[in-house]
Simulated assay, not measured.
Amino acid sequence: MLLPEVHVDEPVTISVAADLLGITVDTIRYYEKEGIAPAPDRGPDGWRRYDTAALSWLAGTVMLRGTGMSVQEMREYAAAYRAGADHAERLALLEQHHSAVLARQAEVQRHLAALERKIKAYRQTIVATSDSARPVA
């Protein structure tokens, strides 16, 4: 994945990787177990070591999840990548997801507009009620 990129000069442990990405160690392990993120190299101590490429892949995974991509869709994208899918095939997967994100965004905008109308109505009711409850001088 190209974006977003997290750069490190030397490979880091899983806890540092989690901190850099704003996720938990368990989340990283889950993505690896599910085949969404490749297992990183291990140091001489046997601990996972994440280089810039591994962190970049994980950062992209976090971004995709943040856009609402399902775990199954992320598995499919990762599998396509590992299977050597060409750029056009991977682009098609991302464009399909992009369309779904735009549709959800439009739906949220409609709901937000309805919520704002409801808030405005309650504010008007409160003002009208408080005006009529004031004693006439």
Rank of each mutant, 00 (worst) to 15 (best):
M1W: 07
L3K: 11
P4L: 13
D9R: 10
V12N: 14
V12D: 14
S15C: 07
A18K: 04
D19I: 00
L21E: 03
L21N: 01
G22A: 05
I23W: 02
I23D: 08
T24F: 02
V25D: 11
T27F: 00
I28M: 09
R29G: 01
R29I: 02
Y30T: 02
Y30Q: 03
Y31F: 13
Y31Q: 06
E32P: 13
E32I: 13
G35N: 12
A37I: 03
A37C: 14
P38D: 15
A39I: 12
P40V: 02
R42D: 04
G43F: 00
P44A: 05
D45K: 05
R48N: 09
R49P: 01
Y50L: 04
Y50V: 05
Y50W: 10
Y50C: 06
Y50N: 06
D51F: 01
A54S: 15
W57L: 07
A59Q: 10
G60V: 07
T61K: 05
L64A: 15
R65T: 10
R65V: 11
G66T: 10
T67G: 14
G68L: 02
G68N: 10
G68S: 13
S70R: 12
V71G: 06
E73A: 15
M74P: 05
M74G: 00
M74Q: 05
R75Q: 15
Y77G: 00
A78M: 06
A79L: 00
A79V: 01
R82L: 09
R82H: 09
A83R: 11
A83F: 06
G84S: 03
A85Y: 12
D86A: 10
D86W: 06
R90Y: 01
L91E: 09
A92L: 10
L93P: 08
S99C: 08
Q105L: 15
A106Y: 04
Q109F: 09
L112F: 04
L112C: 01
A113R: 08
A113D: 14
A114I: 03
L115N: 11
R117V: 04
K118F: 14
K118S: 15
A121C: 06
R123L: 01
Q124L: 13
I126V: 14
A128G: 02
A128M: 03
S130F: 02
A133K: 10
A133T: 13
A133E: 13
R134V: 09
R134E: 08
V136E: 14
A137R: 11
